[in-house]
Deep mutational scan, measured.
Amino acid sequence: TFELKGKVGKVVKIAEDHYLVESEGDKWIAYSDEKLSLGDRVMVVDVDGLKLKVKRIP
Rank of each mutant, 00 (worst) to 15 (best):
I57L: 09
K27L: 12
V8E: 14
V54Q: 00
V44I: 14
M43A: 06
D17R: 09
P58W: 04
V42P: 00
I57N: 08
D46C: 03
D17S: 10
D33C: 13
D26Q: 14
F2Y: 02
M43H: 05
V45R: 02
T1G: 15
L52H: 02
V47A: 04
I14L: 10
V8I: 13
L20P: 00
K53D: 13
T1A: 15
K55A: 13
A30M: 13
V21I: 09
Y19E: 01
V21T: 04
E16F: 10
W28K: 01
K53A: 03
H18D: 11
V42Y: 01
G9T: 04
L50Y: 13
M43S: 06
V12Q: 05
L36F: 05
K53T: 12
M43Q: 04
I29C: 13
K35F: 09
L4K: 14
K27G: 05
G6Q: 01
D46W: 04
D33R: 08
D17W: 07
R56W: 13
W28P: 00
E24W: 03
V54I: 06
K7F: 04
D17V: 08
V42L: 02
A30C: 14
I29E: 13
D46A: 03
R56H: 09
K53Q: 13
E22K: 05
L50M: 12
G9I: 02
D48W: 09
L20S: 07
K10N: 08
H18V: 13
T1Q: 15
K55T: 14
G9S: 02
S32A: 12
L50T: 07
V42D: 00
D17H: 11
V12M: 07
K51L: 13
P58M: 04
S37E: 10
A30H: 00
G9H: 01
E24K: 02
G39K: 06
S37A: 13
D33W: 10
A15T: 12
K51F: 14
V42Q: 00
M43W: 04
V12F: 06
D40P: 00
R56V: 07
V44R: 01
F2E: 15
K5Y: 15
I29K: 10
K51A: 14
R56D: 03
H18S: 09
I29H: 13
K10L: 11
W28Y: 14
L4M: 14
E16H: 09
E16V: 06
G9V: 15
V11P: 00
V42W: 01
D40S: 07
S37Y: 12
K53H: 14
H18F: 10
E34L: 04
V12C: 07
G9W: 02
D33A: 10
D40G: 05
L52F: 02
V42M: 02
M43L: 14
I29R: 09
K10R: 11
P58N: 05
L4Q: 15
K5F: 15
L50E: 08
E3M: 01
E16S: 13
D46K: 02
A30S: 14
G6P: 00
A30D: 00
K27Y: 08
E24L: 04
V11T: 05
L38Q: 08
G49L: 11
D33P: 10
S37F: 11
E3R: 00
L52D: 01
G6W: 02
V12R: 06
G49I: 07
K5H: 14
I57F: 08
V21C: 06
V45A: 03
P58A: 06
Y19W: 08
V12N: 05
V47C: 07
D46R: 02
R41V: 13
A30T: 14
